[in-house]
């Protein structure tokens, strides 16, 4: 208890020291003292973001490292698709599951792709810089760091490679869409059936497409990088469409995060025998 109080006190002193030398109390600026004078509840948004993203990371880590309860014919968990390891449970294999040397959870072979896509995403950068790194915690609220170099050095300069994660994510979206199509079968593999899992996988695939296509790198690729729209009318139309989606990028980021969890958890419940699939026809 005494140690924590001492550490907090040191942190507070560090914050004040940083403010005094480089921050809002730097020489020449108005000497005001408070790290912010905002009177609204500016801390709610970063706190909720922190809690939500932490919950997602903990849940995902549990599911990705567990290596089980990820397949229930015809549904496969989004974390494990495509299942590329020879250790994949029967029925879940993708393209013959060619990787025999991998001994850990098969999810680890693919889960890094959506992780990289979301970590380098322009929306999530705002989210984690504000809520985890407090840089800044909110607008016009002083950050607690004495130094700031931004995304100019390793490792954060790697955020500039967002487009590669986007391209790989598109490949993954195609596979997840195929998984959703396969979900229109019943537990015995017969086509023309639909269950609650079909709904979850289909909605999840649709939301992931909307999240991916609303991406800023997508906006640049389809037309943002050109200067003369009038010479590229098709790309201009594509850019206009993606720009409309892009204005809702944050919304699709959160919705797709939720659909991933819901779709995976339903497969977990089925595969672990905790519930039976609700079938419609």
């Amino acid at each position: 208890m005494a140690d924590s109080a001492h550490n907090l006190s040191n942190a507070a002193r560090g914050w004040e020291s940083a403010m005094a030398t480089t921050g809002i109390e730097a020489p020449g600026r108005a000497q005001i003292g408070a790290k912010t004078l905002r009177t609204d509840a500016w801390w709610i948004a970063p706190l909720l973001t922190f809690l939500a993203l932490t919950a997602f990371v903990v849940y995902s880590a549990w599911r990705v490292f567990s290596g089980k309860y990820y397949f229930y014919e015809p549904y496969i968990s989004v974390y494990y698709s495509p299942c590329l390891s020879t250790s994949c449970v029967p029925g879940s294999e993708f393209a013959g599951s060619p990787i025999s040397w991998w001994k850990m959870s098969p999810a680890l072979l693919v889960a890094w792709i959506p992780l990289a896509f979301r970590f380098t995403c322009y929306y999530y950068r705002k989210a984690y810089f504000r809520s985890f790194w407090l840089s800044p915690p909110a607008c016009a609220v002083a950050e607690p760091h004495g130094k700031y170099t931004g995304e100019r050095r390793l490792p954060l300069i790697l955020n500039n490679l967002h487009r590669y994660a986007f391209y790989l994510g598109l490949v993954l979206n195609v596979i997840l869409t195929w998984d959703a199509i396969l979900a229109f079968r019943n537990h015995n593999g017969e086509w023309g059936h639909m269950g609650l899992g079909t709904v979850f996988l289909t909605v999840n695939a649709a939301c992931l497409w909307l999240y991916s296509l609303s991406c800023h790198s997508c906006r640049n690729a389809v037309g943002g990088r050109i200067t003369h729209f009038s010479k590229h009318p098709v790309r201009y139309q594509m850019w206009t469409l993606v720009s409309k989606l892009n204005s809702r990028h944050m919304m699709w980021a959160w919705i797709s995060l939720c659909t991933v969890v819901v779709a995976d958890f339903y497969v977990y419940l089925l595969a672990s025998g905790r519930v039976s699939d609700l079938t419609f026809f």
Partner: peptide
Amino acid sequence: GVGYCNITKCCTEV
């Protein structure tokens, strides 16, 4: 120094 920007969007907010 465009690399300093970490997309926290406060400029847009104000």
